[in-house]
Amino acid sequence: MGLITEKLPGIIEPVPGGSVLLSSMDAVINWARSNSLWPLTFGTSCCAIEVMMASGAARHDLARFGAEVTRPSPRQADLLVIAGTIVRKMAPRLKLLYEQMAEPRYVIATGSCAISGGPFIYNNYSTVRGADEIIPVDVYVPGCPPRPEGFFYGILQLQRLIREGESIRRPGERRKPVLAALPAGITLDQIQAELRELLESKAQVKLGASATAGRG
């Protein structure tokens, strides 16, 4: 264990992409993020009724999880719920919507159409077979359409993933590192060098170039 890493508060964890998260701070941020998932008002077909509407309505009440603040603008939304079939004409628009969202952003694919194309797989010239062919998806909720309770389970799973810092995101993707103030005289590069040493000694693997390139 190096000198530098001991001086920092909390535990240092490397994350994919090569940035550094301070986990004491990280816990608070992840807690906040997981409890404040504002979905984008977006629904393409049947699932929108169950997942976006019925789950927000009085019986099921998405608000209990703090997720009733549906934002019509992708800039302000955290959660993209793909509720319904994605077809080839819509695919570029879905990608655009995802790109317009601000990091950190999470994606839940609900219903068989968004997972795999559902009933529209064979003999079909139009339906994309699963939204994950276009954008990365964090949580899949099966059903055709899923019940609101099923969707809530998906939300809870996403919350768990966020709290554990286990966002299923490929390295190199746009992600803003969260940094606490560094003690004087220590630079980020030093920490990274030390961390890499630490990791390599533990895991006995060489980290690829992506570990350094992805630093935000």
């Binding site: 393409t44 049947c46 079939t85 077809v87 064979y122 003999n123 079909n124 139009s126």
Partner: peptide, 25 residues
């Protein structure tokens, strides 16, 4: 056309009983 799923084309390959479930959607 942003949710054009080609139901009519699919119908040509499904039995009548099977086509019913597509009309749900």
């Amino acid at each position: 056309g942003y949710i054009h799923r080609g139901v009519e084309k699919m119908g040509e390959h499904l039995s009548y009983r099977q086509f019913v479930h597509l009309t749900d959607r």
